[in-house]
């Protein structure tokens, strides 16, 4: 029992990331009808927003401290970040410590801008082109974005620690009445799960309870009629692209303490996210979220040692296997509706 709970918890953080990316992919596919292979790159850019903020906050000036010696006996050079000088020692240190959550504030405008430029500059011209063309052009764009990031940040993963307050682990088992130290779960993963739940809820609330969201949903169902009613649906769809980019970006920012960002992390997540979208049902937002968590948890179950001993290598292929089975038995995915994105 405790092992099962542990695996469910372990699956949650990966599942949250899948769900957030898949949510954005579905939003884009449902509104614009575009298959966006560059969505993983947006996730990656978000992660590098966190790296950038961390670097900015750590910009330092060097003073020579005569009272301390380094190992050669010369006066020690002390690097002190500007933020500490400007905002005071304690607050500055806290700023640096909290750079990852703070990066969300940076990432939202950056991602909205990136999304807007991408949509207006490139995707706009591909609404009517075949899916194959959309896949190829966004795939090319993803490679270009990757290479740009690689040029600026190098090819190695960059450590971006979580704030000190969240570095420990949380003994989840005690809460449920198990022995201590059975179910241990890092705080940050809990934070990530809560964060993604909030974001997902916010996106749904936005679509469900605002006029803007209502128009977007109407446009997803029948674009032409909404256009005939005199609403500029393209403009709203562009905004949705920006929103999807921002969601992917925030997912990337918060994921950095779990996985040190490198330039190809987007591609790694992208293929799986597409599988998630297809399993959930193309064009179905709840389906994307549900299958994201489902596949994340399944993956963590498959990497249990007991199961690996039974079926070696299952952890590597479980997601694809599930996708194949689901597509063959439920051709529209878990929650796809009839007539929506049938081919």
């Amino acid at each position: 029992m405790d092992a099962i709970i542990l695996q469910i918890l372990n699956g949650l953080d990966k599942g949250s990331a899948y769900a957030l990316i898949a949510l954005g992919l579905t939003l884009i596919f449902g509104t614009l009808g575009v298959v966006n292979f560059a969505h993983g790159a947006l996730f990656m850019i978000g992660a590098f927003c966190a790296v950038t903020l961390q670097r900015i906050l750590n910009i330092s000036y060097i003073t020579i401290d005569d009272t301390q010696k380094d190992f050669l006996g010369n006066p020690l050079k002390v690097e002190s970040p500007y933020v500490k000088a400007w905002f005071g020692e304690d607050f500055g240190a806290a700023l640096i410590d909290w750079s990852v959550p703070l990066a969300i504030i940076l990432s939202i405008p950056v991602m909205l801008l990136v999304g807007y430029i991408m949509e207006r500059g490139l995707i706009k011209h591909f609404y009517k082109r075949p899916h194959a063309d959309q896949i190829l052009v966004t795939f090319g764009l993803a490679i270009v974005l990757q290479e740009v990031v690689k040029y600026f940040y190098g090819a190695n993963p960059i450590q971006t620690p979580a704030p000190g307050a969240f570095t420990g682990s949380f003994d989840f088992g005690v809460l449920l009445g198990f022995d201590p130290n059975v179910i241990i779960y890092p705080y940050w993963r809990l934070v990530y799960f809560a964060f993604s739940a909030v974001i997902i809820a916010a996106v749904f609330a936005f679509l469900q309870f605002t006029t803007f969201g209502m128009v977007v949903r109407a446009g997803m169902a029948d674009r032409e009629t909404v256009g005939l009613l005199g609403i500029n649906i393209d403009k709203r769809f562009t905004a949705m692209f920006g929103l999807a980019a921002a969601v992917a970006g925030m997912a990337g920012v918060m994921y950095t303490p779990i996985l040190s960002p490198n330039y190809h992390m987007g591609m790694d997540f992208l293929v799986l996210s597409f599988v998630v979208v297809v399993v959930g049902g193309m064009g179905s937002l709840p389906g994307a979220v549900l299958s994201g968590f489902l596949l994340g948890i399944l993956q963590s179950f498959a990497s249990m040692n007991e199961i690996k001993a039974l079926l070696p290598g299952i952890d590597q292929v479980i997601i694809y296997l599930v996708a194949i089975i689901i597509l063959l038995t439920r051709p529209r995915g878990l929650m796809g509706r009839k007539g929506v994105m049938e081919d």
Binding site: I135, F274, Q316, Y320, A323, I324, M341, D343
Partner: peptide
Amino acid sequence: LRRSGIYFSILTLAFAQMSYNM
């Protein structure tokens, strides 16, 4: 080939990634 369009692309992609991982 039971599916077409984008589903076919994703299915073949899934098979290829599966072979690669295995």
